[in-house]
Write a protein that binds this DNA or RNA. Structure first.
Lengths: 133, 133
DNA sequence: GTTCATGCAAATACTTTGCAGACTA
DNA sequence: TAGTCTGCAAAGTATTTGCATGAAC
């Protein structure tokens, strides 16, 4: 948290209560704008949806959050201060789990087979979680 | 084309000129709704954007097209009658190339590490294409 | 006190729905 | 001819912008 606070202040920006709330809500899992909006408004505080959009865009610029696209669903946001990982999405209950994988071999194949200078990749899995099976 | 035509007719649906146009436009590469809309309207014909949405939804139901999410961009549609493949996206020019990969090993790891019954996955790469380097 | 951020209202963009007329088979 | 499909208009949803007030430092 303090690292993030410092990052924001170093940019000459303010560390407001709204930003703190959103950071708090993001601790859980990748969430959509609406989910984040509901999470921060379930408490006594009320925050405008515009503010949620603006803060998320701001966090994205600063690299504090990542935008994750899970197939044909809305975009989700997650904190980026985690180890590189991928997602398992349950198509029944919508639950999302993280998973870490040894993808180096595959990346080497891509580099050999293509002319692209690869900078990043996304790898997501869809199926049915243990609970829903 | 004839396979698709048959598939549509077997469902008791019509093979209209609009559907033909959209199939034609999709031959190229994964495209957004707007791109498809522009492509079909560049010719003499004019087609409503509503129709583009409806036909794409219809094709999605019939399994004729797939919806592809490339990171934080809009959804794209591509013909599904291709071999399973992944995408290389150029962050400079937006060009998209297909690539086929030996991902079986990785899938086995996922099955071993997780409780999920995996049904599908998406794997996309982002970087700079040869031309833009 | 200065500057940046928030809330509200309104604008813009994206997607879906209803219905009458047009087209396919 | 029967039934589906399209175009247009309008509604619904998502996201962005402008501006006055409020908060952070």
């Amino acid at each position: 948290m303090d690292t993030i606070k410092k990052l924001i202040k170093d940019k000459g920006q303010r560390f407001t209560s709204q930003k703190k709330e959103i950071l708090c809500a993001l601790q859980q899992k990748p969430q959509t704008v609406l989910e984040i909006y509901k999470a921060v408004n379930s408490k006594k505080n009320s925050m405008d949806k515009t503010t949620v959009y603006r803060i998320l865009t701001n966090f994205l610029d600063l690299g504090i959050v990542n935008k994750v696209q899970l197939n044909d669903k809305e975009a989700r946001f997650e904190l980026s201060n985690r180890k590189h990982h991928h997602h398992l999405v349950c198509e029944d209950c919508g639950n999302i789990e993280n998973i870490q994988l040894p993808e180096d071999t595959l990346l080497k194949v891509v580099k050999k087979k293509s002319d692209f200078k690869i900078k990043s990749h996304s790898l997501e899995f869809f199926g049915v979680c243990k609970h829903c099976q």
